[in-house]
Amino acid sequence: MENQTTVLFLTRLSDLPNLQVPLFLVFLLIYLITLTGNLLILLLIFTDSHLHTPMYFFLGTLACLDMSFSSVTAPRMLFDLLTGRRDISVPACITQIYFFIFFVASEVSVLAVMSYDRYIAICRPLHYMQIMSWKFCVQLVSGVLVLSAIYPLVHTLFLTKLTFCRPDALQSFFCDLPQLLEASCSDTFINVLLIFLLGILFGGVFFGVIFYPYISIIMTVLKIPSINMRAKAFSTCSSHLTVVFIFYTTIFFNYFSSNAKYNVTEDKVVSVFYAILTPFLNPMIYSLRNQELKTSLRRALHRL
Rank of each mutant, 00 (worst) to 15 (best):
L180W: 04
D176T: 15
L157G: 09
K161V: 09
C175D: 05
F158H: 11
F174H: 15
L181W: 08
F158K: 09
L170S: 05
L170E: 04
L177I: 08
P167Y: 02
K161T: 15
F164I: 00
F164H: 02
T163M: 09
L181D: 01
R166F: 14
L159D: 02
C175G: 10
L162Q: 11
V154A: 10
L159M: 12
R166G: 03
H155N: 06
H155W: 10
V154Q: 06
F173L: 01
L157W: 04
P178W: 02
F173P: 10
C165S: 13
L180Q: 05
T156V: 15
F174G: 12
F158Q: 13
F164M: 00
Q171W: 09
D168K: 13
L170C: 08
K161Y: 06
L181Y: 05
F158N: 14
F173D: 06
F164Y: 15
T160Y: 12
F164N: 03
L159P: 01
T160H: 13
F158G: 00
A169P: 06
L170W: 01
T160R: 13
F173W: 06
P167K: 03
L180M: 14
E182N: 15
L153N: 06
F174I: 13
P178G: 05
L159F: 11
T160I: 06
L177R: 02
F173Q: 10
H155S: 10
A169L: 07
K161C: 07
E182G: 09
L159S: 02
T163P: 01
C175R: 07
L153E: 08
K161E: 12
T156Y: 07
L170R: 01
D168T: 15
S172P: 04
T156D: 06
E182A: 12
E182V: 07
D168I: 07
F158P: 00
